Computed example of a mutant assay.
Amino acid sequence: MEEKIIALTIAGNDSDGSAGMSADLHSFYAREVYGMGLLTAAVAGNTTGIYAQEVLPIAFIQKQFEVLNADFTINALKTGMLANKEVISCVAKNLRNYHMGKIVIDPVIMTKHGDTLLDDDAYQTFLTELLPLADIITPNFYEQQRLTASTLGNKAAIKQGAIKLQKMGAKNVLMKGRHDDTNQDTVTDIFLAADGQFYEFTKPFINTDRINGTGDTLSAVIAAELAKGSSMFNSVKIAKDFTYEAIAHPIAVGSKYGPINHLAAQQEIK
């Protein structure tokens, strides 16, 4: 009987399947690892918006950690929506107590449009308890600015911001490129490796409203590749390629801001 490699997502779930845990599990499956989900919250939403959300009780989140670790060897994990101070503290405590492989942290503190998702107490808890546990952190542009308290107006500033995040505890840092300017031709992600080397990953900009779940997918694919034993560099490169292909082959799901296409990415990226 084949023993499967396991990747875990610790996140909220979007009911329309476009983002959060749904996107993570799509990504794990596409990268041929067995995906598990430790649920922190549930979101009632569709392609027109988010209409309600519920955070799960801390005792239930804690129990999920206990039962998963009692029965499985988890090879890598990623975090997503953690909602509030109490959830962040619970997750950080368990990541310190249990060994579950490499830790990919998708901050989920601000949206790709610059809207704040965490209150000040939760944000400070994220900085002090969770960020230092990251084998890699994958902030979007607005999260980069908040985390570094800097206006990142050019490539040199972004690199300095990455160095600052590394000094705050993250071993590797992926500064995701902006994709909210319809006049741009390309999107460049800047990767700072644990050894201090910088790398750039550039793809054509695709002007589309089918981008729900892009950040979730990118971080989930990194986790999947790390679970399989890939290097951090190769995991990031595969994730960048995979996410690009998922955006480049849009699918008609919903009436407005739709999901990306994990099926196309699965076919294109072997």
Rank of each mutant, 00 (worst) to 15 (best):
Q53A: 11
E2S: 15
S235N: 01
T9K: 00
T138A: 08
F201W: 07
E2P: 15
K270W: 09
F28L: 10
G101M: 10
P250I: 04
K4N: 14
S219E: 02
E66S: 14
Q62G: 14
I6C: 04
H26S: 05
V104C: 08
F65L: 00
K102Y: 08
R210E: 08
A52Y: 14
V221A: 03
M232Q: 04
I158T: 08
Y244K: 13
Y51R: 15
I50G: 08
G49T: 10
A246S: 13
F205R: 13
A83T: 14
T202H: 07
E54R: 15
N94A: 01
T214N: 06
I61Q: 04
L82M: 03
K63I: 08
T138W: 03
M81I: 14
V173Y: 05
A122E: 11
G254Y: 02
G254V: 05
V87Y: 13
D119W: 06
P57M: 00
M81A: 06
L130M: 11
A248P: 12
S150R: 12
L218M: 11
E245M: 02
I105T: 02
S27L: 00
S231F: 07
V67H: 04
T79I: 01
A149C: 13
K4A: 15
A220K: 10
M81Q: 09
D120F: 06
T128G: 09
D24R: 06
A149T: 13
L165F: 11
I269Q: 10
L56D: 02
M110Y: 09
A239K: 00
A42Y: 00
P57K: 02
T125I: 14
S231H: 10
I10A: 01
T116G: 01
F191G: 08
D115Y: 07
V253P: 08
V91I: 04
K78A: 00
A239S: 12
T243E: 06
E86F: 07
I211T: 15
A227C: 01
I88V: 15
A162K: 05
V108L: 07
F28N: 11
K159Y: 06
G196D: 10
P259F: 02
I50N: 10
R178S: 07
T182G: 07
T40Y: 09
H26V: 11
A193E: 15
V43L: 08
R178Q: 09
I247Q: 13
Y244S: 05
E32A: 14
Q62I: 09
D119P: 12
A227H: 05
D189Q: 01
N234K: 12
G45C: 13
V67A: 05
Q184I: 00
D24M: 09
R178P: 00
S235D: 12
T186F: 12
V104I: 12
V104N: 03
G177N: 04
E245G: 03
V43H: 04
T9D: 00
A248H: 06
L95M: 12
T128W: 12
N212S: 14
D181M: 09
F65A: 00
K63Q: 15
L118V: 08
L77I: 15
K270N: 14
N84K: 06
A42Q: 12
S230F: 11
S219P: 08
A162G: 14
P57G: 01
F141C: 06
I206F: 04
T138R: 01
T208S: 11
A41W: 11
H249I: 03
